[in-house]
Design a protein around this nucleic acid. Sequence first.
DNA 1: CTGTTAGCGCTTTCAT
DNA 2: ATGAAAGCGCTAACAG
Lengths: 310, 310
Amino acid sequence: MAVTVSEVAKHAGVSPMTVSRVVNGSPRVSPATRQRVEEAVAELGYVPNRLARGLTQRRTGVLGLIVPDIANPFYTLLVSGVEKVAARASCHVLLCNTHGDLARERDYLEDMIAFRADGVLIAPVSDQSRSSLRTLRQHKVPVVLIDRTVQGFESDLVQGDSVAGARRLVDHLIELGHKRIAMITENPAVSTARDRYQGYCDALEAAGIAVNPDYVVPSNAIDPEHVRNATRRLLNLPDRPSAVFAVNNVAALGVAEAVRDEGLTIPDDLALVCFDDLDYASRLYPFLTVMAQPAETFGTITRRATGRAP
Amino acid sequence: MAVTVSEVAKHAGVSPMTVSRVVNGSPRVSPATRQRVEEAVAELGYVPNRLARGLTQRRTGVLGLIVPDIANPFYTLLVSGVEKVAARASCHVLLCNTHGDLARERDYLEDMIAFRADGVLIAPVSDQSRSSLRTLRQHKVPVVLIDRTVQGFESDLVQGDSVAGARRLVDHLIELGHKRIAMITENPAVSTARDRYQGYCDALEAAGIAVNPDYVVPSNAIDPEHVRNATRRLLNLPDRPSAVFAVNNVAALGVAEAVRDEGLTIPDDLALVCFDDLDYASRLYPFLTVMAQPAETFGTITRRATGRAP
DNA sequence: CTGTTAGCGCTTTCAT
DNA sequence: ATGAAAGCGCTAACAG
């Protein structure tokens, strides 16, 4: 049985309430009693029970952070940033990895309600996350969307500009003289995939290049192997693209491996650009042009998004 | 105010206890009442409060995971693995990043007591983590050490064999004909640093090569920039080493960048081997020999370590 | 099978 | 400045 307020109180010859006041730094305690209580706390090794505290105060100091893939350097940096900010605010981070799975996401969101998280930061799986997010909100848990919007769900939001970023990356390829530019996309229910595809089309259109459906390759963008296989088919087209825009870093990795599989090299045989940094990887492998987002600071800034259908 | 057992109970015309039984899947409930309760739960959108539950049951379903650097791919994989196992056990992971800072680690460990974590997995900062770990144990929180032992603290442990791993890496260099082999080390209060240095020395000795103190470079092994600078001095020695053994992946990254700074290349001008995988990075950059540890499965296996002084 | 009582450890509220 | 009482939401332990 752990040490409780009452035991400390007895030890210090005061009431539990006074112990509570001291522990929480209330000024309404005389220096003398404060000292006696502090000694008792130290002597007994008292550590306040945050479950009990959360129950009465209805604040737990816990933030839920829900991402599709912790191992993805983009989310890793994000987690890192959120953890840093949370620590400054004396908060703790409950980390949840959905693996892009809606059911798991739903469960985790319900858990956030159950744990009475003070708030939830989430990079949602897709637009289909809407219903679980609504449930969360019904339970008054503040939500901030990260990186992705959700159709039909208005919320505070932290994200980069995918349309403009994609546009810049593809413009860059066009300036280098590329005309046969492919894109590895992902599920259009993911807002960033939609936006980046939009930027890709905009850039091509502005340059008077028609979008070639053969050059738009769907992928899951979560598993590099999946992308690798999809890309191999692309590289074996009779009219092989000279450049590829990957929807994100994982896709880029898959492309890089497919290129190597085919005995080709980057950037000689194929130019590769992508969204999101590969962090450590890109420091070692400078042949990749990335639109790095400040993932680590995504935990600090906020703006309002409409969540309307496009 | 959130929905409580009592409200559900009233709604279903039963006692709170019966609601509790249904929610927790107790078999001692008639099918009829069970159904009525379930309907009430659904109708009111009841989600049990896990703080309250934790208070009575003294189990929270929360595991603390404490690592020095989430952004390090080794720990990222570890986190990923732990999260996976925890999810299977319906547990949640409270993630804490110490940044190799003892004070922060102490605070986090105290928080784990406060939150009544069911257990703590920790890759400790160094041998100096001992006192906070003892406090944790006094409070009956089960601890498992990951990757690193702590002198004077016996505990369950998950780790790879650093001595043998280092030995193999350096043997490999020797087989390739290298004689001038440097090592980037870190704080000897970190068990893996000690062990890997041991393996390095063993390998050299077995080959009849004397350990050259100039070739043993201390670093913090947390910040690639620090390693980068330390390595540059190494590369400017009159008798430059032909190979480097980096104590871990971060150190290897720093070395790789220093090599590039000096206008040299790997592996032509310098062979580089290291402990721990760089994950995504090493898939793109195959010039690096790594002793990859199964970081992701470090969350599943356990053995007993003595924690005696070496 | 179901309900009652009591209490987990803390803090709010109201006294003093 | 300090304390007493009540209750946060839930579940053990015991009825019946």
